[in-house]
Design a protein around this nucleic acid. Structure first.
Length: 753
RNA sequence: UGGGGUAUAGGCAAAUGGUAUGCCAACAGUUUUUGGUACUGUAGAUUGUAGGUUCGAGUCCUACUACCCCAUCCA
């Protein structure tokens, strides 16, 4: 498979390469207020995975700063999930609550620096004062309190002298910040609540934004990886660490998109609702997206990890198809688990020409699974087959048993249907068949061709088991609430029949029930007397799918692909000055309208352009470079921060005009110049970047490239003209970009004719 | 309405300015005592839109559009 790096690993590698950190330290920091779900698995895979890949380590930290929601049982569930997935955290489990003393000391420091104050506004007032997304907020009058008063108040808050909500500690940042999170964020609130670990020792608790960054710092975390919704919180993260002037190296926050899977829900609130309202049987219900649920369903850690790997990591909000998860578990189990036979909906078959009984040898694994193991299969004249494996009036393409079509009993004999017995209402109750003695599996000399081999169980020795058939919890891809629940997400079959070896030998806990799917002996409800199996996932079923497709195409007309209509927005009008500028550029300098537009609307660029123009009169080329390259540099920097001058741009353009360098090289030189501030001519001279236009030099290189890529030459001549760029690219690469692209183009065109 | 993000096939992701690639899903074929697996192949994309720069743009520039996040004393 194509192993490409995700953006987080790219960042980590760059940091390591730059020597920013000697060792990478990550952390998985859940709040212990609920059961972890597969989204947590993604986070675990990322954090522990990165630590492992770069030989660093990963901490497990309970972010337990809210005493009213947290509990030890969740801590256990979280630890359990990490271990089950096969990861080991560094040292002991960490708790933000262990850092409360340090956190408090840092708060005192912030107060002393005048960077934090005790605010005594009510909750409502605080919200009101914060302003809105478009209007600036205003600062509380309490922000003017002296350091001494703040210190005193803070200590008394800690000592429990005030009621909940009477005061809070806030950072003094900027009440008019465009980022709402920076409008004097709360650092501490008063909570007279019992904390599951610190008990009643504290009356104040740190807020996430304050506690998280410092906990990361205290643990020596280097890369603090979290989900996208914390992007706005990054500013506070940086502010706290920078304001406290903590010695580097310090951690930096990076965000990735949280996992979404269709036909399920992932939010804590919705999962809780399912459990509390009894729509499912607890947090570990096999239909739940919780790790406990997936685990009880029968998913393996390997399959989940592989899923996390397959879906990748990026910053785009996305919804992964549950089929990808299902593929992962099938893929994992296919090579691992024994095949056994189970009949879910039994139909009795009496083989009238068979007398007595025998035991047949049967391998647990098909030939393409490199595993050993086999069991005995009892056989007699009375057996059961799957009801849907017989059809009196078969649809076309039906491979199984019909009155005309024989079928093989897997691992046993071929049978032919002789008679169909029905009850009063016409339901089939039994089939009378004959077997072909010379068709025994492994020593078949009958010469009968069958289209299919079906599963069966012997009547007198079969064991009755309960099978729970799980399906998607919701009927729609993006479920909103309980109204979207799938009423058939669980079907319980009480009287399924399995071959005896499955119960007596117990070759595994996971099985493939031949032709049905993968099943798992339920770890809670299973007993030898009353075995229970959960369906993890069905097998791919192209027969079933084909039937469904035939039905649906009959009803549904193909929907015409809807083309999205793109609405053009209004472009802000130009000011008068800008219009004048635009007119001058288009008329006097003959710049194209787009470039003139960019320059005219951006004063910094216009100034830069005219300054360069006064040195070297080549308006079009200068304008292009200013509107593209310089614009990029000026995007995040101020004009005064630029390392190069307008005069240097002019110099660069002169070299282009004099055909000393090509446009391509000019871009390279520009990059260099933006980095170092060196003169362009010096850069060209030092690196020998003068362009090569001599065909005598270029032709041999083209020949070489063509000789090395005969297949591409072939493809090109066959009509794949897109490969033209490939050849030009290769030639330019061979010359370090110095070949004159125009000349190369002409020559390549000639050569490829 | 301000700020911060994101946009590549039905889904998810890759792609030093130089052949748009991989997995899932779909479809077809070969093998098969699982309508499974494996293998082979097919189809599917003017890289959100419109322009610009360049010999060459998914990638650089400009504008626009759509979606997500932010106004909890939650995390």
């Amino acid at each position: 498979m194509n192993e490409s790096k995700d953006f987080l690993r790219t960042i980590v590698e760059e940091d390591l390469h730059a020597g920013k950190y000697s060792e990478v330290v990550t952390r998985f920091p859940p709040e212990p207020n609920g059961f972890p779900h597969i989204g947590h698995a993604k986070s675990i895979a990322i954090n522990f995975g990165i630590a492992r890949d770069y030989k660093g380590h990963c901490n497990l930290r309970m972010d337990d700063t809210n005493p009213t929601t947290e509990d030890t049982r969740y801590v256990e569930a979280l630890k359990d999930a990490v271990e089950w997935l096969g990861f080991q955290w560094e040292g002991n489990v960490r708790y933000t609550s262990d850092y409360f003393p340090e956190l408090y000391q840092y708060a005192i420091e912030l107060v002393k620096m005048g960077k934090a104050y005790v605010d005594s506004l009510t909750e409502e007032e605080i919200r009101e004062y914060r302003g809105t997304v478009t209007e600036a907020g205003r600062r509380s009058k309490y922000s003017e309190r002296s350091v001494e008063e703040n210190l005193d108040l803070l200590e008394r808050m800690k000592n429990g002298e005030f009621k909940d909500g009477e005061h809070v500690l806030r950072a003094k940042i900027d009440m008019s910040a465009a980022n709402m999170k920076m409008r004097d964020p709360l650092l501490y609130r008063i909570r007279h609540a019992h904390h599951y670990r610190t008990g009643d020792a504290w009356n104040i608790y740190p807020m996430y934004d304050y506690g998280h960054c410092l906990s990361d710092y205290l643990e020596g975390v280097t890369h603090s990886i979290c989900t996208l919704e914390f992007e706005n919180n990054r500013d506070i993260y940086d502010w706290v660490l920078d304001t406290l002037g903590l010695t580097s190296p310090r951690p930096y926050q990076h965000e990735f998109a949280r996992l979404g899977i269709n036909y399920t829900v992932m939010s804590k609130r919705k999962l809780l609702e399912l459990v509390n309202e009894g729509y499912v049987n607890g947090w570990d219900d096999p239909r739940m997206s919780t790790i406990a649920g997936l685990r009880r369903r029968g998913y393996t850690p390997e399959s989940i990890l592989n899923f996390c790997h397959q879906i990748g990591i990026a910053k785009a909000n996305s919804m992964v198809d549950v089929a990808q998860l299902e593929f992962c578990i099938r893929d994992d189990l296919n090579t691992k688990v024994p095949r056994v036979m189970c009949v879910l909906d039994p139909l009795k078959v009496t083989i009238e020409n068979y007398e007595g009984s025998e035991e047949l040898d049967a391998s647990y694994y098909p030939e393409d699974v490199p595993k050993e193991g086999n069991r005995k299969l009892p056989f007699s004249r009375e057996i059961y087959i799957e009801r849907e494996d017989f059809s009196e009036n078969p649809p076309s393409g039906f491979y199984r048993l019909t009155p005309e079509q024989p079928v093989r009993l897997k691992h046993a004999y071929i049978i032919t249907c002789k008679e169909v017995i029905k009850d009063a209402s016409g339901n089939i109750t039994e089939i009378i068949a004959t077997y072909h003695p010379d068709s025994k599996s492994g020593s078949d000399t009958s010469g009968i061709k069958v289209k299919s081999a079906i599963q069966w169980v012997e009547a007198s020795t079969a064991k009755t088991v309960e099978v729970r058939l799980y399906d998607r919890l919701y009927t729609c891809e993006a479920p909103e609430g309980v109204e979207d629940l799938n009423p058939d997400s669980l079907k319980i079959i009480k009287n399924a029949l399995v071959e005896p070896a499955l119960i007596t030998e117990k070759p595994d806990v996971r099985f493939q029930f031949e032709r049905q799917g993968y099943f798992y002996a339920d770890p809670i409800d299973y007993t030898d007397e009353a075995p229970v199996f959960n369906r993890i996932v069905g097998l791919k079923d192209s027969w079933n799918k084909k039937n469904k497709a035939d039905e649906s195409t009959a009803k549904l007309e193909r929907k015409a692909p809807e083309k999205k209509v793109q609405i053009d927005g209004e472009v802000a009008p130009m000011s008068e000055a800008e219009q004048a500028c635009y007119a001058k550029y288009t008329n006097e300098f003959k710049l194209n309208s787009e470039v003139s537009n960019i320059l005219a609307r951006d004063e910094k660029l216009a100034v830069f352009f005219e300054a360069a123009l006064s040195v070297h009169n080549s308006p079009i080329t200068i304008a292009n470079i200013v509107a593209n390259e310089v614009a990029r540099e000026l995007k995040e920097k101020d004009a005064s921060e630029l390392k190069f001058t307008a005069a240097q741009i002019a110099e660069l353009v002169k070299m282009i005009d004099d055909e000393i360098i090509s446009n391509k090289i000019a871009k390279q030189v520009f990059e260099e110049m933006a980095q170092s501030g060196e003169n362009p001519s010096k850069i060209v001279e030092a690196q020998g970047l003068v362009q090569i236009s001599d065909p005598a030099v270029i032709v041999p290189i083209i020949d070489d490239v063509m000789a090395k890529n005969p297949d591409n030459v072939e493809k090109y001549k066959a009509g794949n003209t897109k490969l033209f760029g490939f050849f030009v690219g290769q030639v330019l690469k061979a010359t370090g970009g110095k070949a004159n692209p125009q000349v190369v183009n002409d020559l390549v065109a000639q050569k490829l004719q």
